[in-house]
């Protein structure tokens, strides 16, 4: 199997940059005591990150995707099985697209 040096260098560069991101935030927090406002922000960050991920993704796909996303969310709230919620989301989008005749 082929492994080119330039490809390997690009992969290692990406891996190093990504590790710095993953470990960097915690490493900075460990050496400096952040101000209370930043600590409060960290408490609010998890939900905000995922909403900020989701909103543009749904907007880009149009209203059937919003319905499918809502179906996944409601399934999760009611039943609490993530694998099932994901399948319901995909199935609802699939059915809506089929019903609308869009590919």
């Amino acid at each position: 199997m082929m492994l080119r040096w330039d490809v390997l260098a690009a992969i290692l560069g990406m891996a190093l940059a990504t590790f710095l991101c993953r470990a960097g935030g915690y490493a900075i927090l460990r050496v400096t005591r952040p101000p209370p406002f930043v600590q409060a922000m960290l408490q609010h960050l998890p939900g905000a990150i995922f909403v900020a991920f989701l909103a543009p993704a749904l907007a880009q796909e149009g209203w059937p995707a919003c319905v499918a996303g809502a179906a996944a969310l409601i399934t999760q709230a009611r039943i609490g099985r993530m694998a099932l919620s994901i399948l319901v989301g995909v199935a609802v989008l699939w059915l809506l697209r089929a019903a609308l005749g869009t590919p």
Partner: peptide
Amino acid sequence: DPAPILAATLAAFVINLRLAPMGAALA
């Protein structure tokens, strides 16, 4: 071709910056 070493590294860094506060939040 050849692989974009600097561009790929920079792209990975910028896009994965979101992971930095995650590690901090799990302190």
